[in-house]
Structure formats: C-alpha cells, structure tokens
C-alpha cells in the first residue's frame, strides 16, 4: 500500500495558518510549534486530517507554569525563552504512519487563563484537559465536563501551580512533638 510522502509540519502549517504560527523550536530532535491560543483546536485538527501529516494520536497534554518569571507580553528575544504568558499547554501528538512526534504549544494568560478545548479533535483530550483544569486552573472553553478530576470537589486552589505550597508537615522534634500529636488524636499506644 502506497502512502503519500511525509510533509514538513512547520511549512505545511505556515502555508495554511501563517500568522497564527508564533514560534518554532528544535531541541534534542523534538519540534515545538507555538501557535496562537485561540486557534489551537483548528491547528490540531489540521494536523490530524491532512495527508502527509496524519498525527492520528494524542499522546499527552501537559501544562507548565512559568510563575516566578513574569514575562508579560514582551519576551527577551532569546530563542529558547519564548514565553509570552504565564501558562504553557503542550499537546504531544504522534503520527503512527510516519512514526514521528510533534509538540503543539499554546500560552494562556495569568489572569483568567482560557484555551479552546481539543476534545472535538480527539476524545482522548477529555480527561487530560480535565486534569489540567483541575491542577492548573486553566479553563478549556467548550469542554463538556467541567468538574474536578483528581482533587475532591470542595478543594480550594490548583495544586500544580507554582505558587501553590507543597504543604509540608513539620518534622517532629522534642520541642514540637506535642503540637504534632495534637492532630493525631487516634494514635494508640
């Protein structure tokens, strides 16, 4: 069976989306394409259905919080430091036919972070995006199920943000052992 030859995803995207393609980066053989946040779902759908690309599987969606570095709208010009906003969401997609991976990245603002959902492209994005909505507090517009996924329903805050404390319990020493034992009322001898 003959398959159409593989196309370069960057040039293909540049032809169709032009301005929406904000940044392209290569690192250790992995290509990252930063796209306009509002057009993420369109780009992903294009990558999935276009012949010669056929990124047919969504491997992972992960979010990263660049909290302490306040990049704002301007970035400092270095190639590796393209971070216009606080939150970055990466879609790791995989083309089984051409056996290659691609990362499509979009940024969301610190205040009221919003991105369009990719569940219309892959059902697999459903839980992966719900996890990010739960842990990072990024709202995916158009997502059918907005409940929390991992944390209890009444949990306050979004644990994976960098400004959320890890929540350590202090180590018990002889001077504070009584204090720690106070919240272990059921410890029997």
């Amino acid at each position: 069976m003959e398959f159409p030859a593989a196309r370069d995803p960057v040039s293909a995207l540049r032809d169709v989306f032009g301005e929406a393609l904000l940044h392209v980066k290569e690192f250790r053989g992995e290509t990252t394409i930063v796209v306009d946040a509002e057009r993420t779902a369109e780009v992903l759908d294009f990558l999935r259905v276009t012949s010669g690309l056929v990124y047919n599987m969504l491997s992972d969606v992960s979010a990263v919080d660049y909290f302490p570095n306040d990049y704002g709208d301007a970035f400092d010009g270095e190639e590796s430091d393209f971070r216009p906003e606080r939150f970055g969401v990466s879609y790791h997609i995989l083309s089984m036919l051409y056996n290659r991976r691609l990362r499509v990245k979009a940024f969301a603002a610190a205040e009221d972070p919003r991105l369009p959902t990719a569940t219309v492209v892959w059902p697999a994005a459903n839980w992966l995006e719900r996890e990010i909505a739960d842990m990072m507090g990024i709202v995916f517009e158009g997502h059918a199920d907005q409940r929390r996924l991992l944390m209890p329903e009444d949990w306050y805050g979004h644990p994976h943000r960098r400004d959320y404390p890890l929540g350590k319990e202090t180590v018990a020493f002889s001077f504070n052992v009584d204090e720690i034992h106070q919240h272990k009322p059921f410890a029997r001898d």
Partner: peptide
C-alpha cells in the same frame, strides 16, 4: 510529605 496525603492514618482512625 505534601498536600495530597494524610500524614499518618492515625489522624482519622485508631491504629493498633
């Protein structure tokens, strides 16, 4: 030692 884990089950039930 983090936000998600109860630091010892003896915080909620008696342990023998």
């Amino acid at each position: 030692n983090n936000y998600a884990i109860v630091q010892g089950v003896d915080e909620i039930i008696p342990v023998d």
